[in-house]
Design a protein around this nucleic acid. Structure first.
Lengths: 214, 214
DNA sequence: GAATTATTTCAACGAACGATGAATTTATTC
DNA sequence: GAATAAATTCATCGTTCGTTGAAATAATTC
């Protein structure tokens, strides 16, 4: 091959296809044959590289989790460094959400699919909570601690409930299901990450302040 | 039979089983045989009563949708009747959420399963938005109009985005996935509808006011 | 209470599923 | 460039899936 850059090895193509299809239809709504077909490889290759179907799903979830955690951690450390004393609520919420907004604004379909996949796992009842816990809760706990420093009078219970509302609002936005397009009659678009996060940040910030002000 | 009250016909038992299992595992994560087994009926009976698997799913979704719409409509009409002029944001949000809180506080497992089913459909990418649109959007539009009267300076775009954040927060609460239990180390419980909605109402109200205040 | 209709079970179909071992091709090592 | 290892394909296994037609049972009608 003459171009190293544009060649995507089959192992990665399987992950890309799995990412998109799992995000769209869920774990049980996708067959290994559909994934293989979309990736233009044989069915058996998925098993060769990843083992069981469940293992392929976890590998897909893991691939970008570390990157996502990292940009979010850097965002938190950045506002903590550039602020004398503790960052305020809006700064912390912004640090939490802006990295995701930037990923979606980039227009990278892979990241868009991954965001929808995270939304699916977060909303999943059975084994979703364990995957979220293992991969994201350590970082989330750091954010909640930061919020606690910004809202010292808040109880941990209130903080966790408020985070759940934030998480829910974020999840529906990540999923980009097209619901808001339909409800608003085309006025708003699920894919409009600019508006979605520009409005979500003040919305959530006001919610935290209102519930936890004292 | 001596007690008409406690006898549940097989058709209803199928819907009950489908409700619970579809909510837990999604449309593709459940087989008709699992549903039939849980309902203690033969597999073929589900097809006899409801036709295709997809039709059974829609019947399950439809069964309680009308009731839910009705209590929510009555709640909106009630606050509009007992308020001179327009109800404020908190009253409207309360009317939207309190009926669901009451359903969950009742401890009825059937309604709990149905709430989780609605959460699943709302988060579902492919055909979820059409089901939500057909069954719930007419009522939701009435609520958004009421919010517009309470926030006359808000743009429709902002109102719809704020509703999406509300919808996301609500969806995650309806699903009762146990995520908050895990994240908070047992401090909060997904099933605690009292706290969930008592805090969600001021949180969301403050969000609307902050984004749409002018 | 016979006839008719509605409900429920039984048995089975073809299709698609995840998975695996053997064969084949490609890449790497020495 | 032969030997070895990795990657990929092929063929196929046993299982389970949704669905259906026929048979059996229960309920309703007249």
């Amino acid at each position: 091959m003459n171009s190293q850059q544009s060649f995507i090895p089959k192992r990665e193509r399987i992950l890309d296809a799995a990412e998109e299809l799992f995000a769209l239809h869920g774990f049980d709504g996708v067959t290994l044959r559909q994934i293989a077909k979309q990736a233009n490889v044989d069915v058996a290759l998925a098993s060769y590289h990843f083992g069981k179907k469940r293992d392929l799903f976890e590998a897909t979830f893991l691939r970008r989790a570390e990157i996502l955690n990292d940009v979010r951690l850097q965002a938190l450390l950045a506002i903590e460094a550039e602020t004398t004393g503790n960052p305020n609520v809006e700064q912390i919420i912004g640090a939490f959400l802006r990295p995701i907004q930037e990923l979606q604004l980039r227009g990278d379909q892979g990241w868009a699919n991954y965001c929808a996949l995270v939304a699916y796992v977060n909303a999943s009842s059975v084994w979703g909570k364990e995957m979220m816990h293992r991969n994201f809760d350590p970082l989330i706990s750091r954010y909640i601690e930061a919020l606690h420093r910004a809202l010292p009078n808040a109880t941990p219970e209130k903080l966790h409930w408020c985070y759940q509302y934030l998480s829910g609002a974020l999840t529906l936005t990540l999923a980009q299901t097209g619901r808001i397009d339909r409800l608003s009659g085309g006025l708003c678009r699920s894919t409009d990450a600019q508006s979605a996060y520009d409005l979500m940040i003040p919305f959530v910030t006001a919610g935290f302040l209102s519930v936890c002000h004292e």
